[in-house]
Nucleic acid binder design. Structure first.
Length: 596
DNA sequence: CGTGTTTGACCGGCGC
DNA sequence: GCGCCGGTCAAACACG
């Protein structure tokens, strides 16, 4: 059980962390184009040049050397100067220059040929040189394209940095509006900042490290220096809430000190109503709810959606920010994914456009926990269960629940820390950095949707993640397997931290650094003190998505209502797919698990 | 009897 | 203003 699982896990990480394998992941290949020099600090230099520049460079130089060989044997310094020159030519994408150089050499050869060589030889060389020039032109075109891509990408990344910095400023500024809002809702500034190179759908993730001179080291230092008095949650030690730093992350991966788990965005829109009701009932909002109102659902949580909180209650960023959701798509016959938390079903509805009802759950592990999730089967493929998480736990989580919570929190945090997604939803295409960041190994895995009122990150685990499929166990593993692998994925390392988030794995760190280095030409020197965003971490670690996907996929094969150990467990019931178990989902009713 | 689910009703947001 | 729709409530019910 555990052993086999661990073995598998080891296998996974082994695959990924092997020096050779780390460069393999398709994610890198995919990103490589966009990031240009992303191929790595070491490999990247050689590869593109080897393809485009190197050949020409050596050819030209060889010719020159051959020509020069007859005259004099140049010393090392001379060689150096020549190399520099040639290097410039090869890397500078100057067609004219290369051309002129080639022609120069041709002329040289031609002149000498007038005296030494016969006419034929000269013509042959001329033809050769011309073809070479043509090739050079093509290569230069390619290089130009690459350069333009890299520039675009770099600008995007740069924009992310600016966005993050702006968020921080806004947050630290007195009485400033929540940074996320500004960030999200100020396209003007965005345009100003990014100079239009930024794709409209670009989502800033704060993923890339800014250029050295702009890297917000001080801020990070502040964060680190702050009393990251961890949350009461032991599990939270992995993700210590930085003191007063919540850069637009409604998700609360970084939250105020006292809170335990990040409180990203949660339902406020009924607080007011509930408070009003309580008033009518003649009880204080803080009184325990009369009947079934879960202990965890305090009326005082109720605040009109999008309205600032009243009174002493500090305006939580979540009160004004849009909700961020993390949606996990996974194939499963089971009712829902067991993520280690306890859930209580509080409603079920027929959603428009989907014959399958949508079930609503809320976390019952602690009073006032704002986390909710929706479980619904995909309309197109009823074997696919879509679990949408919203909010972050405000209580200690059992180890089993930590990884998923953090994963979703991190994804939501990245989403919220970015700019507003475009209305048309999918951001996967083009330069959607977040999508690639979340699960870079498969471009089809992560999507961002803004179709809903809330930005949503979707992790699609229904498609095989590269590197993960081999590890998928044939049968349903023990829940501990999922928990263990997720826990492993979320295991904290003490050192690096960016934007308040720690990196979760040393291997991830190195990968992140490599990615950051390649991505932005900036973080190449990222040391222990440097910071790398969680997005970069996830983005850069080929193992993470694979591990996560494999774990979840392997587990959801049939987890019943277990809800992962603990008391009673989440008795979550999800309506079976209409096709399979006679799920006549005519209405909201009669669709329970009891029938089975 | 305690806990969790079911399910009709209700509420608020949003588009027309 | 109205209707639709997503989301939630809460009394009734089921289960162990």
């Amino acid at each position: 059980m555990m052993e086999s699982y661990l073995g598998k896990r080891k296998l996974m990480s082994g695959n990924g962390s092997a020096p050779g394998a780390e460069r393999e992941p398709t994610g890198f290949q995919e990103v490589a184009l966009g990031y240009g020099d992303n191929a790595g600090a070491e490999g990247a230099e050689a590869r593109p040049r080897a393809v485009v520049g190197e050949m020409d460079f050596f050819k030209t130089e060889k010719r020159k050397e051959e020509a020069a060989a007859g005259r004099a044997h140049s010393a090392a310094p001379d060689d150096l100067s020549i190399n520099k020159h040639d290097l410039t030519i090869n890397m500078g994408l100057h067609v004219g220059r290369s051309k002129s150089r080639s022609e120069e050499s041709i002329v040289e050869d031609g002149v000498s040929s007038n005296e030494v060589l016969d006419h034929r030889e000269t013509k042959a060389e001329l033809a050769l040189a011309k073809s070479e020039i043509g090739r050079l032109n093509e290569e230069n075109k390619q290089l130009k394209v690459m350069l333009s891509r890299m520039t675009t990408n770099y600008n995007s990344l740069h924009m992310q940095v600016l966005t993050v910095m702006k968020q921080r400023n806004n947050h630290r500024g007195p009485g400033g509006a929540p940074s996320h809002e500004l960030n999200n809702m100020d396209p003007e500034n965005k345009d100003k900042q990014d100079g239009s190179l930024l794709p409209r759908q670009f989502i800033s993730l704060g993923t890339a490290a800014p250029p050295d001179e702009q890297r917000p080291r001080s801020v990070c230092a502040d964060i680190r220096g702050g009393d990251c008095s961890a949350s009461p949650s032991n599990t939270d030690a992995a993700m210590p809430p930085p003191v007063d730093y919540c850069p637009g992350n409604g998700n609360g991966v970084m939250i105020n000190s006292k809170d335990v788990m990040p409180l990203p965005t949660f339902e406020h829109h009924q607080r007011h109503h509930r408070a009003h009701e309580m008033e009518q009932r003649g009880c204080s909002p803080d009184d325990p709810p009369p009947h079934h109102v879960p202990k965890g659902w305090h009326p005082n949580n109720k605040v009109p959606k999008f309205l600032p909180a009243k009174g002493h209650e500090p305006v939580p960023e979540a009160a004004t920010m849009r909700k961020a959701r993390v949606s996990v798509r996974a194939r499963s016959e089971a009712a829902m994914i067991s993520d280690g938390c306890q859930w209580r079903k509080y409603g079920q509805k027929m959603a428009k456009g989907n014959p399958c009802p949508r079930a609503y759950y809320r976390c019952t592990m602690a009073a006032g926990c704002p986390v909710r999730k929706q479980v619904q089967r995909c309309a197109e493929d009823t074997t696919v269960v879509i679990t949408t998480y919203e909010g972050s736990h405000n209580h200690p989580l059992p180890p089993a629940a930590v990884p998923m919570a953090k994963t979703t929190a991190a994804a939501a945090s990245m989403l919220l820390s970015g700019s507003m997604p475009s209305a048309d939803g999918s951001l996967m295409a083009g330069s959607n950095f977040l999508a690639r960041a979340v699960l870079p190994c498969s471009s089809n895995v992560a999507t961002i949707s803004a179709s809903a009122p809330f930005p949503t990150v979707t992790l699609d685990l229904t498609q095989p993640a590269p590197g993960a499929q081999q590890q998928q166990p044939p049968q349903r593993p023990d829940p501990a397997q999922l928990q263990a692998v997720l826990a492993e994925a979320a295991r904290p390392v003490p050192v690096p931290q960016l934007f308040g988030q720690k990196l979760y794995d040393p291997s991830i760190l190195s990968a992140a650094q490599a990615a950051a280095a390649g991505t932005n030409k900036v973080a190449a020197s990222a040391d222990a003190g440097d910071t790398v965003s969680a997005a970069a971490v996830i983005a850069s670690d080929p193992n993470f998505p694979a591990v996560l996907a494999a774990a979840i996929k392997s587990y959801i094969g049939g987890s019943s209502s277990g809800g992962g150990g603990g008391a009673g467990g989440s008795s979550g019931t999800m309506p079976p797919p209409p096709a399979s178990s006679g799920g006549d989902s005519n209405r909201d009713d009669k669709i329970g698990e009891q029938e089975s």
